[in-house]
């Protein structure tokens, strides 16, 4: 049983086609890296899984995206509950202009949890989960903007995890971070795998190599190759993948 499957997915921004016939199947509790040159459609594809592209006017999707075997684009699907199940971490840390505590509690509150005790517990465990607790435990009431970029990004991950999703989407989550923060986030991703299914977009080949189990290479809106990360990096079947990888490694 796959956690995520996409079947013959096409996607259009107006008249221009951004994704062409994408077929991927992702097993639960794995990390999948999406790589490819800029503009090839990685973000577009990632944002299909929590229907974030719905926010953009004039877009169209064809084909099927299944999560836990259910077509998330079928009629009558509740998008808000889908997004509760499929969390997302963005390229730039984007905490709310609220306190550290309220940032993590936000997802709980909007999902109707009012039990103060439960909220406090959940905030604490998720901040611990992203290994941020020791750094922020004394300033939970302070603005999230007082944290460093790396801390903010881990806070955003905690915020996404607090509502206990089963899939976590990450769009270049470390591209705005320094090497040390990046290492921390990567470590975190590796650990999170035991509980979540993770899809991560990255431009950093080493990162893809370090954290992912499988890698999908996109080129101009097409999926060129999807295989285990090891195969993609050492023995790709398609020449274009080879060129891209070696090019990127220099």
């Amino acid at each position: 049983m796959y956690k995520i499957e996409s079947k013959n997915v096409d996607f259009f921004y107006g008249a221009s086609q951004a994704l062409k016939n994408i077929n991927i199947a992702i097993k639960p509790n794995t990390v999948t890296a999406l790589i490819g040159p800029s503009g090839c459609g990685k973000s577009t594809y990632l944002r299909l899984f929590n229907r974030m592209n719905d926010l953009i006017d004039n877009t169209k999707i064809a084909g099927q995206v299944l999560i836990d075997g259910e077509d998330i684009y079928a009629k009558g699907v509740n998008v808000d509950s889908l997004r509760k199940k499929v969390g997302m971490v963005f390229q730039k840390p984007n905490p709310f202009p609220k306190t550290i505590f309220e940032n993590v509690a936000y997802g709980l509150r909007v999902n109707g949890i009012t039990d103060k005790k439960l909220i406090e517990e959940r905030v604490e465990t998720t901040i611990k989960q992203v290994v941020l607790w020791d750094e922020v435990k004394d300033k939970l009431k302070k603005s999230a903007f007082e944290l460093s970029g790396g801390q903010q990004q881990r806070l955003c991950i905690a915020r996404a995890l607090a509502i206990q999703p089963s899939v976590v989407l990450m769009d270049e989550p470390t591209s705005a971070l320094d090497p040390i923060s990046t290492a921390k986030v990567e470590e975190l991703i590796y650990e999170l795998k035991t509980k979540y299914t993770i899809v991560i977009v990255t431009h950093n080949m080493q990162q893809a190599g370090r954290v992912s189990d499988t890698t999908a290479f996109f080129y101009m809106g097409e999926l060129i190759e999807h295989d285990t990360t090891k195969t993609i990096f050492t023995n790709p079947k398609i020449e274009r993948t080879q060129n891209y990888i070696t090019g990127r490694f220099g």
């Binding site: 929590n50 974030m52 926010l55 808000d80 509950s81 997004r83 509760k84 969390g87 997302m88 963005f90 730039k92 984007n94 905490p95 709310f96 202009p97 936000y106 997802g107 909007v110 999902n111 955003c156 915020r159 996404a160 509502i163």
Partner: peptide, 27 residues
């Protein structure tokens, strides 16, 4: 209101209205 802020809210399962009164209006 930064798009990132609204998307963050929606991505956490907040409805459009929740996003408007919890993120857009305060911002």
């Amino acid at each position: 209101t930064p798009r990132a802020m609204k998307e963050a809210s929606l991505a956490l399962g907040a409805s459009k209205w929740q996003t408007i009164y919890k993120v857009v209006i305060p911002y």
